[in-house]
Amino acid sequence: MKFAIQINEGPYQHQASDSAYQFTKAALEKGHEVFRVFFYHDGVGNGTRLTTPPQDDRHIVNRWAELAEQHNLDMVVCVAAAQRRGLVDDGEAERNQKDATNLHPKFRISGLGQLIEAAVQSERLVVFGD
């Protein structure tokens, strides 16, 4: 079965990203397809490569990136939500004249249409939020 995952909250503050990760991992292990993981609202914060948790804590961003690497996951950060919250990739930095970028290379920034498309193309949309 084809799943789409929507994550509304950032890492650490809420369990949403952790739950979504465990769900996505379990779905992939069961042989399901995950069409896209879409990060919205503060959820865009899951895509910053600058995260530095304490050594004894899980690294939420890297964990997503590793799962994406293993399963060729499409992880999309909403552009409008990202701009508000300072999540920047090379393209965004150039467009908005920013002097730095912070998006992890396993994530990509794109429009809200990607969420709608994921919902259209997938058989189930599962939302994780606060």
Partner: peptide, 19 residues
Amino acid sequence: TIYAWESLEVVLIGAAFDQ
């Protein structure tokens, strides 16, 4: 919270998708 506003933004974008 911003949920209401950003939800509305999804609705506006989604309207172009013929669902």
